[in-house]
Design a protein around this nucleic acid. Structure first.
Length: 822
RNA sequence: GCCCGGAUGGCGGAAUCGGCAGACGCGGAGGCCUCAAAAGCCUUUACUCGAAAGGGUGUGUGGGUUCAAGUCCCACUCCGGGCACCA
């Protein structure tokens, strides 16, 4: 494509200038109003692909737009540089993950600069920087000292492909690893956890005030899964001084309890099992422990599968509501690690209990009257209670209160809140992560490494193991150390931290990587925090965004981030993903489209304009055969604008006339609409509006009638400013050509629409007859209802459409329409 | 199964409050320029009947509210995403 200017040299020139002059460096004591714009820092996977381009184009637009609004904008960048892909690549290449990673960081950094994205590079951070690791480890120990980091044995998710344990959040719904796709295995292992459950309520409640996509907030609410209920005792029939403790959210249905169920892992199971049932129970427990979660769930539907999922223990407990004994079953549909690991079963009002009771022939007693027309089956809704003694006639809420009081006085009942959320498993059996800074001493047990010995660094002279096993585990030089307490021999922890711990605080480091001796000075951080606009992919809706929220709250509570707002990201935008043939574009799928060739042809500006124009930023974008043509179209638009600004084929006339006034009105309406579209993340509309204005200006300027020079210049200047955040290179170049020696377009103030010019002088009013458009009248927008009415009825086309019919009613809504009903 | 989001020309998508459906762009058609092509420029482009003037139909399906529905209400179909034994 022949371009009217040299794309490559123009873009290189401005990129170099922004970098060399530190145009977007910002100091912490900048007096201007502050704005913190942040894109999720990227994993350094090598040269950027179109997914990066899209993400960082949006981010860069925000940075440049907010700067033009006169704010001091913090725009930092860094790299999420620990993680498995680098380690796996290093194993393959026989090199060290650090060397591999740093090469990829350079590539990605240079791609971002080539895109024209601007940052305060002085603030760059990366996870494997020894200085950064030092603070990551310091924070781990702060959590450890506060009892928020602990080591415990628990059934954990082991990914055989990744050769490490995973957090619950990293296991997909189908039981596979989100990274490798391997089926995750349950293992009992001792691991490190962060006590995120201590913050469950706050993490849930604080969501309400956040300006985040409702979808993301809902996902977090579901993940936390708060449920309110009652925990109470079901006394053993054989020994009423002892009891089976159960949790329920439906105490009001207590009269309908016809059996109880305990989990296969329940500690009382052995004791409750009678000899006659022992074999059947043992068989069930064995199967439950061997089956993966996936297999368990596969048999969850009522029917044949269910028959193998439970067994009678032979024991009975007393229903405190009825004082009747009910049988105790063991079944794998009750989870050992939720609530008390035991439930009261109410088949009439719970789907799973109903299915189970049907298969095992257990009685079903309705305690809530379903609405008329309700078919047979479990009814979990609200209704008047029956067969329920003192609860009869009450509805759910009152019945719950009443039942809860009853349980409190008769069955050691207490109100209880349970969460689906589990503690965050943070240890990983991999090499390329931040080492957990503790040692194991035979005498003193787990001992924290003293702060002055941090950071614990990863050794450089390691051979990456083909099996994926961390070389740390066998590295004697790393492993052997002395106990900080007793000076005796000790062994280092060889597990590293989940990389999500690194990304949980990088946004704080960005605020102040300058103050020596601290990770960040909270006073400096408070100048920027919380992040005004956070931008990233929706795939982090739970993982990163939940962990980062938790981390900030902890750091505040531990005095490390005192004085900060307790939420890190005030406003979140999640952009859609790029797809090819319906498949997400990603390195692992091997279907990446890189921007390099586009940089050479349409330039970064053309590619940026495409990504802004392609559709609503929140929507997914399909990369198709048509995409190339749209990208070319974006470049064509830039070229046309460039030529117009050179006054190519332009005719001028002297005094401004009505046509010039119309152009000026369009200019100011576009300023208003683009500003509005920017504020509402409707960049595709902003581009369309700019194109429309250009079309009008261009048409007038090149007509025989021509355009007044001042009008054209006002329009071109406005277009340059409006386009500056979108296509920063060419607008900077054109501005410089128009105003040599003056400050850059990027330092101009964002234009403000003149409200006296945004009103239209005449508008088209439509006239409908019986809802069908019959005439379009050009009118003064200030027209009265009566005038609109009269004008409409005076129109010839309208009269013809009415014909001989008599007019029943006229709806006049000037200046938009008049509707005549016959 | 439950909860969200969506469905508009050949295609990507517009339509802040219920008020001209299809902005803007891509693609297509025709033309200008040219020896020719590329580039550029101009016209046209929802479907349909019609030579035209003009008419009819039209925002996934079926109903409803309204003078007026892509937009609001009810029911459904399909697509995308999330959750899925959490008692």
């Amino acid at each position: 494509m022949a371009r009217p200017f040299d794309v490559t040299s123009v873009e290189a020139k401005w990129q170099a200038r922004w970098l060399d002059e530190g145009t977007y460096d910002v100091d912490n004591d900048d007096p201007r109003e502050r704005y913190y714009a942040l894109c999720m820092y990227p994993y350094p996977s090598g040269a950027a692909h179109q997914g990066h381009v899209r993400n960082y184009t949006f981010g860069d637009l925000v940075v440049r737009y907010q700067t033009m609004l006169g704010k001091a904008v913090l725009s930092p960048i860094g790299f999420d540089s620990f993680g498995l892909p680098a380690e796996n690549a290093a194993i393959k290449a026989g090199s060290h993950p650090r060397i591999f990673t740093e090469e990829r960081m350079r590539e990605l950094g240079s791609s971002l600069r080539r895109l024209g994205a601007v940052y305060d590079w002085r603030r760059e951070v990366y996870s494997h920087d020894p200085e950064y690791m030092k603070w990551s480890q310091t924070f781990f120990l702060a959590l450890f000292d506060a009892g928020l980091a602990y080591r415990a044995e628990a059934p954990v998710n082991w990914c055989p492909g990744c050769h490490t344990v995973l957090a619950n959040e990293q296991v997909l719904a189908d039981g596979t690893c989100e990274r490798s796709g391997d089926l995750v295995i349950r293992k009992n292992l001792e691991q490190w956890f962060f006590k995120i459950t201590d913050y469950a309520d706050e993490l849930l409640d604080d969501l309400d005030a956040l300006d985040w996509p409702e979808r993301v907030k809902t996902m977090q609410r579901n993940w936390i899964g708060r449920s309110e209920g009652v925990e109470f005792d079901l006394p053993l029939a054989s020994d009423p001084s002892r009891a089976l403790r159960v949790f329920t959210t439906r105490p009001d249905t207590g009269f309908g309890v016809t059996y109880a169920v305990i989990a296969p892992e329940h500690p009382l199971l052995e004791e409750l099992t009678r000899n006659a049932q022992r074999d059947a129970v043992r068989e069930l427990v064995e199967r439950a422990s061997n089956e993966s979660d996936l297999e368990r769930m596969a048999s969850s539907d009522a029917g044949p599968g269910l028959e193998k999922r439970g067994a009678f223990t032979g024991s009975y407990v007393i229903n405190p509501f009825t004082n009747e004994p009910v049988p105790v079953y063991v079944a794998d549909y009750v989870l050992g690690n939720y609530g008390t690991g035991a439930i009261m079963a109410v088949p009439a009002e719970d789907e799973r209990d109903f299915a189970f009771a049907t298969v095992y022939g257990l009685p079903i007693v309705r305690t809530v009257v379903p609405p008329e027309g309700f078919e047979d089956g479990p009814f979990a809704g609200d209704g008047p209670h029956v067969n329920s003694g003192f609860l009869n006639g009450l509805h759910n809420d009152e019945a719950k209160m009443s039942a809860t009081e009853f349980l409190a006085s008769n069955a050691h009942g207490v109100s209880k809140v349970n969460y689906r959320l589990r503690d965050w498993l943070v240890s990983r059996q991999r090499f390329w992560g931040c080492p957990i800074p503790v040692v194991y001493c035979e005498r003193d047990g787990i001992v924290a490494v003293p702060l002055d010995q941090l950071p614990i660094l990863l050794p450089d002279d390691v051979t990456m193991n083909e099996s994926g096993q961390s070389p740390l585990a066998t590295d004697e030089a790393f492993l052997n150390t002395t106990c900080p307490k007793c000076d005796g021999p000790a062994r280092r922890e060889t597990d590293t931290m989940d990389t999500f711990t690194d990304s949980s605080w990088y946004y704080l480091r960005f605020c102040d990587p300058f103050t020596p001796g601290v990770a960040f000075d909270p006073v400096q951080a408070a100048k920027w925090m919380p992040v005004d606009q956070y931008i990233g992919g929706v795939e982090h809706a739970i993982l990163h965004l939940l962990y980062a929220r938790f981390y900030l709250k902890v750091l505040i509570d531990l005095g490390i981030a005192s004085g900060l707002t307790r939420e890190p990201f005030a406003r979140l935008f999640t952009q859609g993903m790029l797809r090819i043939d319906g498949v997400k574009m990603s390195k692992s799928k091997g279907n990446l489209i890189t921007p390099e060739s586009y940089f050479e042809t349409v330039g970064a500006d053309g590619l940026r304009l495409f990504h802004l124009f392609a559709g609503p930023p929140a929507d997914d974008v399909d990369w198709t055969d048509q995409t190339e043509e749209i990208i070319d179209g974006c470049a064509r638009f830039i070229d046309r604008f460039y030529r117009l600004a050179q006054y190519a084929e332009v005719n001028f006339h002297d005094a401004a006339d009505e046509s010039d006034l119309e152009v000026r009105r369009a200019v100011h309406r576009t300023i208003a609409s683009v500003t509005d579209s920017f504020d509402r993340w409707m960049y595709n509309i902003a581009v369309a509006d700019v194109m429309s204005l250009f079309n009008l200006v261009s048409k007038n300027a090149r007509s025989e009638h021509g355009i007044e020079r001042a009008t054209l210049d006002e329009a071109i200047d406005a277009l340059l400013k409006l386009l500056a955040p979108m296509t920063p290179h060419i607008t900077a170049e054109m501005w410089q050509q128009r105003y040599p020696g003056e400050t850059s377009v990027h330092h101009q103030r964002w234009p403000v629409a003149d409200s006296s010019l945004t009103e239209r002088s005449s508008v088209t009013m439509i006239v409908q007859v019986n809802g069908k458009v019959r005439a379009r009248l050009v009118i003064d927008p200030a027209i009265s209802e009566q005038e609109a009415h009269d004008l409409a009825l005076a129109d010839e086309d309208v009269r013809r459409a009415i014909g001989t019919a008599s007019i029943a009613r006229v709806v006049a809504r000037p200046p938009r329409l008049v509707n005549i009903i016959t």
